[in-house]
Structure formats: structure tokens, C-alpha cells
Computed example of a mutant assay.
Amino acid sequence: MLRTATEADVDIIRRLRNQQANRDVSITSHEITADEHAAWWAKTSKDPSRRVLVYERDGATAGVVNFFDLEGTSGAWGFFLDADGLAERGETLPAWIEVMREATAYAFDELGLDVLTGEVLEHNAVVRQMNRRFRFVEGTPEVRYADGRELTVIPISLRKQDRRKGK
């Protein structure tokens, strides 16, 4: 289930984002400080072009979905899961499929988007494979530098009419 993030979620959002597994596949890989996170939340929570949603599984916070650059019928997204907690419970794959299904439905059915974009790091083969399963198309890779690393970032996009529909 997806729900709008609130002030009460800010600490857990930061804790999940700082899990090593999430940092390893993010453009910004450093550990997010409390001050940095508070500044992000203060700006993000008031920005009409953004939505931050909490993904809950069996009543517990299991991830975060960020929509940004929402303009007209297009927008971008990203998400991260409670990698440690889900792995411990053996729920990573079903949670991953569920959050992607719910987030793409939210983008197209709730936000009214026609095109959903995002980015994935080239070395993140597992996410790239899952994106293809959900019919995202990869664009031309781009080299960037962040946190002292050279990264190859691949843009992805999904058009509403191309999305997978639930059963």
C-alpha cells in the first residue's frame, strides 16, 4: 500500500535511504546527515511538483517512492526499499514487484501521467532487468560524477499505453 509521507515518517525515510544496499545503487552514495535530510524534507514537502509516498507491507514501512518534476502529464520517479528488513524476512522480490506495480499505477491513474521517467545506474543489472519486465525503455547512457565516483546513468521511460496491467 502507498500512502503520503508525513513529518512522522522523516526519520525512517532517512534510515532506509542510508542503508548500504540503497546507497550502493544511488547517484548520491554518501550517508545522508540529519541536517541534510531535514533540509530536503522542508523543501520537498512544500513542492507541488513532488510527491513522497511511503510503501507499507503488512502494516510496516517497507520503502519510499519519490515522484518529482511533475509537470502536466509527465514526471519522474525513484524508489528504495527497506533492503535489510525485507531481505531478513525473505520478502525482497515480492515487495519489489508490488511497489513497482503500485507506483506505476499511482503515476498513471492518480497523477494522470502519460510518461514516467527515471534513471538507473548502468551497473545495477537487477533493477534494469526488473525495469524491462515492467516495460520501461532505456535511453542513451550518460557519464556523471557524484560523491567522487564516475557513474554511467541510464535514463528510463514508460508510456502509459505501454505499461503492464494487473490481472
Rank of each mutant, 00 (worst) to 15 (best):
A83W: 07
A103V: 01
G78K: 08
D69I: 00
Y55F: 15
G72N: 07
Y106A: 07
N66Y: 03
L53Q: 02
A107Y: 03
V99Y: 10
G85V: 09
V54R: 01
F67Y: 15
A62H: 13
M100R: 02
L53V: 01
W96K: 04
E98A: 10
L86R: 02
S74C: 10
L70P: 05
D69V: 00
G75W: 01
R57F: 08
R57E: 12
T92C: 13
R101D: 14
L93G: 02
Y106R: 05
T92W: 15
Y55C: 12
T73Q: 09
D69Y: 00
L70E: 06
F68H: 13
F80P: 06
R89G: 02
A103F: 05
V99N: 11
F67L: 07
V64N: 08
V65E: 05
L53K: 07
V52F: 04
E71H: 06
A83P: 08
L93W: 12
A95E: 00
D58L: 14
G75L: 02
D82A: 04
E91Y: 01
V54Y: 03
V99I: 15
W96L: 14
E98Y: 00
T92V: 13
R89K: 15
T92E: 14
A103G: 03
F67S: 03
G78S: 12
T104D: 10
I97H: 15
E102Q: 05
G85Q: 11
D84N: 12
G63F: 02
D69S: 05
G72K: 01
V99R: 13
A87W: 02
V99F: 10
F79A: 06
R57S: 11
G72E: 06
E71V: 02
G78Y: 03
E56I: 03
L70S: 08
S74G: 10
E98D: 12
P94S: 06
D82T: 01
A60P: 00
F79E: 04
E102W: 00
E56K: 09
R89A: 15
E88R: 09
L86M: 01
D82W: 03
F67V: 04
